[in-house]
């Protein structure tokens, strides 16, 4: 694979997000991930008795690929590659990051790991609903709570009917 010879396009408008212009950490992270995969790959048999290649080969390839790509990325960043945030339908890539909104949404996504099992899906989904709506600027949290609860309960009943295993309705009460 050749390194990309893109000369940095000076497309970043002055208003563009100054989102850490040199994201070396992505390249380093990729290299670290590649190293883990490589290590795991070498721990597996590369050849097998009947097949010419064993289960380790592809893991090694994936790890090696990530390691090299991470290194190339670091090099490109060092040479001044620009990174512009993507535009989405309701998002403007050139605005600054709203940390509070991001963290609120992140909590909404992380919450199920803790509460899904012990407190059940309807409860968790309602809480996440309120959090995400709040992250998007809704301040009528009572209304969100009611909307979220209705949606979560309706979805629980519907999808349970359709054969999904969503667990009990509210485990602490045993229902």
């Amino acid at each position: 694979m050749s390194t990309d010879e893109r000369n940095t396009t000076e497309g970043g408008s002055p208003a563009a997000a100054p989102a850490s212009p040199k994201p070396y950490w992505i390249g380093i992270g990729l290299m670290a991930m590649g190293a883990v995969w490589l290590y795991a790959g070498f721990g597996l048999p590369q050849g097998a008795r009947y097949a010419a290649v064993g289960p380790g080969l592809f893991v090694t390839l994936a790890g090696g690929g990530l390691l090299i790509l991470g290194a190339i990325l670091v090099l490109q960043i060092w040479r001044g590659e620009t990174f512009e945030a993507q535009d989405a339908e309701d998002a403007d890539g050139s605005t600054k990051m709203d940390k509070r909104a991001f963290l609120t949404a992140l909590v909404a996504v992380a919450l199920p790991i803790v509460t899904m099992g012990p407190l059940g899906m309807p409860f968790t989904a309602t809480l996440s609903f309120v959090l995400v709506a709040n992250a998007f600027g809704s301040r009528r949290w009572w209304l969100d709570l009611i909307c979220g609860a209705i949606l979560a309960c309706a979805a629980w009943f519907l999808f349970n009917q359709l054969g999904l295993q969503l667990g009990r309705f509210f485990p602490p009460l045993g229902v």
């Binding site: 909404a108 996504v109 969100d144 979560a152 295993q165």
Partner: peptide, 19 residues
């Protein structure tokens, strides 16, 4: 409204993964 729309999408995502 967008806040409730995105909140709803997360609920369905959660159901999809948990289910």
């Amino acid at each position: 409204p967008r806040p409730q729309l995105y909140a709803g999408i997360l609920v369905f995502a959660m159901i999809g993964v948990w289910g």
